[in-house]
Design a protein around this nucleic acid. Sequence first.
DNA 1: CCGCTGTATGGAATCGTTTCCATCCTGGTG
DNA 2: CACCAGGATGGAAACGATTCCATACAGCGG
Lengths: 382, 382
Amino acid sequence: METIPYSGDMGGWGGPVRWEASADGVCERPVSRAATIKDVARRAEVGVATVSRVLSGSGPVSPATRERVLRAVRELEYRPSALGRSLKTQRTGSIGLVVGEITDPFCAELAAGVLACARTLGEHVLLDAAHDDPAREAEIVDRLVEQRVDGIIAIPTGHGDRWRAAMRAGVAVVFADRAPAELPEIPSVLADDAAGVRSAVEYLAGLGHRRIGFLGTTAPGAAPGTDAGVREATFRTALAERGLAPEEDLVVRARPSRDSAFAAAAGLLQRRPDLTAVLAATHLLGEAAVLVARELDLRIPADVSIVMVDDVPWAELCDPPLTAVARPGRDMGYRACEVLLRDPARRERGRPVVLPTELVIRGSCGPRTGMPGGAARSARTR
Amino acid sequence: METIPYSGDMGGWGGPVRWEASADGVCERPVSRAATIKDVARRAEVGVATVSRVLSGSGPVSPATRERVLRAVRELEYRPSALGRSLKTQRTGSIGLVVGEITDPFCAELAAGVLACARTLGEHVLLDAAHDDPAREAEIVDRLVEQRVDGIIAIPTGHGDRWRAAMRAGVAVVFADRAPAELPEIPSVLADDAAGVRSAVEYLAGLGHRRIGFLGTTAPGAAPGTDAGVREATFRTALAERGLAPEEDLVVRARPSRDSAFAAAAGLLQRRPDLTAVLAATHLLGEAAVLVARELDLRIPADVSIVMVDDVPWAELCDPPLTAVARPGRDMGYRACEVLLRDPARRERGRPVVLPTELVIRGSCGPRTGMPGGAARSARTR
DNA sequence: CCGCTGTATGGAATCGTTTCCATCCTGGTG
DNA sequence: CACCAGGATGGAAACGATTCCATACAGCGG
């Protein structure tokens, strides 16, 4: 390999073009690597410091020099390498985003919010999905730390150790949607799930429903901070406040998979044909409830009313359209990114940011049918 | 700022701990920056080269030394910086992924496929959304080039210049889902949309439908390579093959927004109450068709049959469940990533990878109703 | 006893930036 | 005319890894 001199007007290099024998050893073709700041400096006949000054607009540069540099930049199609800069400045300009599963509509909304905010702040987003697997989450966080991201936004699933290690490594962390109680020192952006569930229960109770089923997520020893814990706990509290003793039998939990959700919904609706309403704690569970109701020939809302937490696009397409507790996924993502990047003050004192939810009333809930319908329904049920 | 000597067993440094006056100037607290390979070397009393050898397993190292190094690594919680490594090796280990909108279910599926493949190959994924805006896309590509990503996977929207510039900068590019005809040199992974549309048309024709509406996307001068062009063109061809002259009036195009899709669907169904089936070219258009049909009190499939391209989760939840042409979004993402990272041969010869589609038959299509129903329906319509 | 092979190791160059600092020069002021 | 402020500029030192190369030493055959 040999460098060839540039024969242009400046007498300097024409750029970083080199000649190199191709693999077959027969034809030779020019191979160009990306131009560096040195190439630009050489071509513009200035020092690298001057090029840097022109490009970053930091120091004083004479107009003539600036023009020469910019021309060289254009001619060489020079793009400064973020690697060199990051190494020197100790900031990469990118943040990590760890969600459960990007195809989940809520995660996707949240990601969209993060992307929107990151874009306005000029940051890149490194995305990965942990699939609710703490080990995978830990590995992802490890790799993000290696990448020296400026910060991490996560819907956390695992235990605290890895997150604490990340913070010790100097990476800022903000949780979204969930906040493990064992990590109170890490700031978080949450939805007001309690208010959402409460409004749903009150709405159903207001329609006259007395026996309301709850489809929740498995988190038996769930800390109070967890969404699973909050929703179920609030469900019980809200019922109690209304003077409705919650029957243990009406609360069913499922793992976060379609199959498990379906099984849970089927179990609940078959076991308790006397219930007149169901509150699903996630959109997966809502989906399962709808499908099971359809399978059992239960009319919505005539036979059973359904509300679910998470307003996903299909809620409107359902027949009837589904009443849902809308949680501001996009806003949460945006806010989390803001807290991470431009609100270190809030990062210090650890109170979570809580965004409001909204009960979106559509057509899936009706007044409790005059005739409880236990007989009629048990006839239909298998 | 002052370094303090480590007083441990080795007599070396205890790590990169420094003392620094805090902002208020009152309390002094230890501030630790991330350990570097030098800190490890010092602590293990070896050279940096040896540390590197231990960690990358490249050269010969005596067991005793290896143990000392590993201990130092543990004690300092050392994580090699990807920046330093990337700068030296000229590979960042990350790829860019440019989609239209991450909340779009198809984009999300594709992204999931890319993530899955990237994970198996140890690559990171930098995600951004171009929102169908060529200018935004161009800016994103520019920034990805600055980041020196190893490659880019994109659902392209803009013109060729920027992509060619990226390739000139040495970044490999693979297109997914769409392949601008003006860039035949860039490899691509596509769905067999033609076969999908054809099977849908044949299915509808087989059910007896003669007047089939088409809801497509705007791309008037769309190059044949574009999905918009392919779907519409195939629709016409397939009709013609069946001896059904396509009426211009039955083909409507919309921009890729909910409003535009809704307007298009409403226009079509109101203007042509005589049509008995609709083929929607995207899931947004399918959604619009369903909502409009519901609004016009058209029963599906009794009054109008609906098929759409793209099988999204809500298709199954619709009532009736929607017949759809499933396109393997996840597989396309996975494959695109494979082509990008481990199939340079395929990258050379530019034939696109085409993955099969599948017509998923559900309940939204029925035989053409005996009575065309023009009278009855026009009565219902407004 | 000499030279050779091969393992174990450390020093130093390199990757592409930013930025500190020294130098040079110009024009204004005493 | 000497001096100085300050604008323009270039050299060189980081930043944190990898990797080439030189060195040191042990074992061994001739």
